[in-house]
Design a protein around this nucleic acid. Structure first.
Length: 828
RNA sequence: GCCGGCGUGGCGGAAUGGCAGACGCGGUAGACUCAAAAUCUACUAUAGGCAACUAUGUGGGGGUUCAAGUCCCUUCGCCGGCACCA
């Protein structure tokens, strides 16, 4: 055996071996419990970054650990390979997006393979390939059939320079992430997925996910934003139109002194038409629309409005109150109209003060009486109904119920639950995405592409114009088609789908990646789903994770999958920092994984990352820390090499005798070994505390050096220690473990070995150290036989000179004993 | 503004309410060496002391407890998310 650890030679060797033998290929096996371990697949930017290394290292520890524990582990990898950067690259260097993307994938696959992760590469998927996006399109059609995919006119983010809609996440501080021009709101006919149909279930079933971080569930819950209230109907006095408003405070209906519409509300034009208010209102609407979304929804911006000249009739009182247009009312929440109750709503209060609108108090706090004249801020808390006709004196909660019932009987209102969650805008005016499989026929209207005509393939080698417009619009061979219904001339949809659509089902495709008849077969998803452990960055807490959950629920209702949730357990890993801030090209503080792997090896890189911080926390990169990890692996290597050198009998040593029969030194080292097995197992399995697991292994190695150097080794004991040590290291540093395993005489891969189980007998201690305290302060320690009765321990301590000194002339009030740990003497 | 998370040595970080600082990095001294690297050994929270030891110490203040980094209240700082949602 080489005396020196040579990472490069050894890693290349084992990576090649694993690939040749398809060591990590899996298929369904009814005899083993399954475990689906999944890391979020990357966008193929071309280069692995440290965040990826961290993500995949964590996943690999779990995958390998579960394999050794006897699970049939599915551990796949693929590429989220549609998306904007490929088009940007095409515009910049003229490389077709497909070529650019596939080159990037090839490079990243090579880098990923150099990490030695236990992927079943036969299951690799790339969302930009027709054999994948064909099924993305097929799924779109299933959604369409069920009414879960639809087209509607809506106000969307529009970048004038790029000439396309943008997803919310592509708008950074009100500007286009690509060209930095200000994003506008534009009314456009776009495709949506009806996520709101599952709003309630998406919220409720968060409770079925105890294995998700609380933080992520809270974020999703806030995003869904359920609110309970009522829709109440007001009537426009001048036109007779009925205007529904949504409110969570129907109990304040008697306090309504005005109403405000959103600038884009369709009634605005109708009410002002032909009146002297036409011009000033239109002027105001234009001004509001010019604001960016950020400004419009910022609490900083002053609330402004303008009177329309119209009035509405309060359904409760029959009173006529003025109708305004305001900049703080959102068209797409509730009904785009808000009743103004200045006395009991903060915003309304400010608005009413500014425009000298009247106020009316209709809720009074218990044991107090407020007056409009002296009101300094809105009273928004609970109280008793007042100025509210027959409802006076009720608690406002009771008032809420009764008022809604009353209005409901009159046909002027009903209970309603509202969600902040909106339907998901999935169409993009982009080239590099999955084409939406729809054809527009002038005669028959929009028609789905028949399933047997899928995929609707993207033309390759397209030319990009600097306008930013999708090239598909300039490819008649793509968009000129015939209507599937009448056979007449028709135009193909040139919009493509948001890449989040592609990533909302890839975990299902992994279970059946080569199926050319179906997106995935029910039997395979039934076997593998759910994903037992999903690992990725917290930046996807809402978008990706919500969309994927929505997909699974919709597919379940179509009978395509049998599960309710995609990801049973979720681990959100922290960022990799350098000098306290996130590694990024723009900050110039990146470290290239490829260089680190070349210099120190993949095992070192992985070990450092796992050791430097718990997985859910941010991790500070440190090259010195990396060197420390390398040093440890060298020490690990040497303890095996030196032991074999000093004691050649080791390799063929018979199993050691029972613990009780062994000398003290052997008992001691076995105790360290078995307590390490216990700790590492618990840390990995229950807590994901890989950092403390690694530190326990380091302590074991330190103890083994001491054992080795102290005197004659017991070959059976040392052999057990080294074999188990190598098994413990295997999930963290798989290459070196494989090599050491072989050196120790192992014939199969260490990764197919069983995970060590600790021996209770070896953990037993003969002597224990007991600390004694006086009033909670440590005053001394005492070693006693483990079998000694606690009362005897106490007596021994109280008789000690040190104890007597510490107690002095004080009186012992009581003595508290924690068996095996400490004795606290309370004195006064 | 609201909701989370985090504040522990020079640094990364450990601690089911029970010895604060495991493990690693860095540092100091020494061994080996002609020398260096590598490796090994010892020490390494702060203050005092030759030492045994003593006092202080987990952002600040208060509390519960025999015992608090850990639980409760309060306050400050940093990071993240949401933010006119009627």
């Amino acid at each position: 055996m080489e005396e020196r650890y040579q990472h490069e030679k050894l890693e290349t060797k084992w990576q090649a071996r694993w690939q040749e033998t398809k060591a990590y290929k899996v298929s369904e096996d009814q005899d083993k419990p399954k475990y689906y371990c999944l890391e979020m697949f990357p966008y193929p930017s071309g280069h692995l970054h440290m965040g990826h290394v961290r993500n995949y290292s964590i996943g690999d520890v779990l995958a390998r650990f579960k394999m050794m524990r006897g699970y049939n582990v599915l551990h796949p990898m693929g590429w989220d390979s549609f998306g904007l950067p490929a088009e940007n690259a095409a515009i910049k260097n003229g490389t077709p997006p497909a070529d650019w993307t596939l080159d990037n994938i090839a490079n990243m696959r090579r880098q990923l393979k150099s990490m030695g992760i236990s992927y079943d590469w036969d299951r690799e998927v790339a969302t930009c390939l027709p054999d994948y996006y064909r099924w993305t399109q097929w799924l779109f059609l299933q959604f369409y059939k069920k009414g879960l995919a639809y087209k509607k006119l809506g106000y969307v983010n529009w970048c004038p320079d790029c000439a396309t809609v943008l997803a919310n996440e592509q708008v950074v501080d009100g500007a286009c992430e690509r060209c930095s021009s200000t994003v506008e709101k534009k009314a456009l006919d776009q495709w949506y997925f009806k996520t709101t149909a599952y709003a309630q279930e998406l919220l409720d079933s968060l409770e079925d996910l105890p294995g998700w971080p609380e933080k992520v569930k809270i974020m999703q819950s806030n995003w869904i934003g359920r609110s309970e209230g009522a829709q109440l109907i007001f009537e426009v006095a001048e036109t007779g139109d009925r205007v529904p408003v949504y409110t969570t405070r129907p109990d304040t209906i008697f306090g309504v002194t005005y109403m405000v519409l959103a600038a884009e509300h369709p009634l605005v034009e109708k009410v002002i038409a032909g009146t002297s208010y036409e011009e000033p209102v239109r002027e105001f609407v234009r001004k509001v629309q010019k604001l960016t979304d950020v400004d419009r929804t910022s609490t900083e911006v002053e609330k402004e409005g303008v009177f329309t000249g119209g009035h509405v009739i309060n359904p409760a009182t029959g009173e006529k109150v003025p109708l305004w247009v305001g900049n703080y009312v959102l068209l797409d929440y509730g009904t785009g109209a808000v009743m103004g109750v200045p006395a009991h709503d903060e915003r309304d209060f400010i608005f009413a003060k500014k425009y000298r609108l009247p106020m009316k108090l209709v809720i009074q706090p218990a044991g107090d009486n407020l007056y409009v004249e002296t009101l300094r801020e809105a009273y928004v808390d609970e109280g008793f109904m007042d100025n509210s006709g027959q409802f006076d004196g009720l608690t406002n909660q009771e008032g809420k119920r009764q008022i809604v019932d009353w209005l409901e009987q009159k046909g002027l209102g009903e209970r309603q639950i509202n969600f902040r969650l909106r339907d998901w805008l999935i169409s993009r005016q982009r080239y590099w995405g999955a084409p939406i499989p729809i054809v527009y026929c002038p005669e028959c209207g929009p028609q789905p592409v028949p399933e047997d005509q899928l995929p609707v393939e993207l033309p390759l080698n397209v030319e990009f114009r600097p306008t930013g417009e999708s090239p598909l619009n300039h490819y008649p061979s793509f968009h000129e088609t015939t209507c599937p219904k009448c056979g007449g001339k028709a135009r193909r949809e040139t919009d493509t789908m948001d890449t989040f659509v592609c990533s909302s089902w890839y975990f299902l495709r992994y279970t059946d990646p080569q199926n050319d008849q179906q997106a995935f077969s029910r039997s395979k998803t039934d076997y593998w789903m759910n994903v037992d452990q999903y690992i990725g960055g917290v930046e996807h807490a809402i978008l990706h994770l919500m969309y994927a959950r929505f997909f699974v629920k919709a597919l379940r209702d179509m009978g395509l999958v049998g599960c309710d949730e995609p990801f049973q357990n979720l681990l959100t890993q922290g960022m990799v920092l350098m000098n306290g801030s996130k590694m990024s090209k723009s900050k110039g503080n990146t470290v290239s994984p490829e260089e680190i792997i070349k210099k120190y090896g993949a095992d070192t890189a992985r070990l450092f990352i796992l050791f430097a911080a718990p997985p859910d926390r941010d991790l500070e990169w440190s090259e010195q820390g990396v060197e420390g990890a390398y040093r440890f692996l060298s020490r690990l290597w040497r303890i095996v090499a030196l032991s074999l050198q000093e004691c050649p009998a080791l390799k063929s040593a018979a199993p050691r005798a029972e613990v009780a029969l062994l000398p003290k030194a052997e008992k001691d080292i076995l105790r360290v070994l078995h307590s390490t097995i216990k700790k590492v197992t618990e840390d990995v399995e229950n807590r994901f505390n890989f950092n403390t697991a690694v530190s326990a292994v380091m302590e074991l190695v330190n103890a083994l050096y001491q054992y080795k150097d102290k005197g004659e080794m017991d070959p059976g004991v040392m052999r057990e220690c080294l074999e188990q040590l190598v098994r413990l290291v295997a999930p963290f540093a798989p290459h070196i473990a494989e090599e050491l395993w072989q050196e120790l005489g192992g014939e199969q891969s260490v990764h197919t070995e069983a995970w060590p189980v600790y021996d209770e007998a070896a953990l037993a201690k003969e002597e224990i150290e007991v600390v004694f305290q006086v009033n909670g302060k440590v005053r001394g320690r005492l070693t006693v036989p483990a079998t000694m009765e606690q009362s005897e321990v106490q007596e021994t301590i109280l008789a000690m000179e040190r104890a007597k000194e510490a107690i002095g002339d004080k009186t012992v009030v009581k003595v508290i004993s924690v068996p095996g740990k400490l004795v606290n003497i309370v004195v006064k």
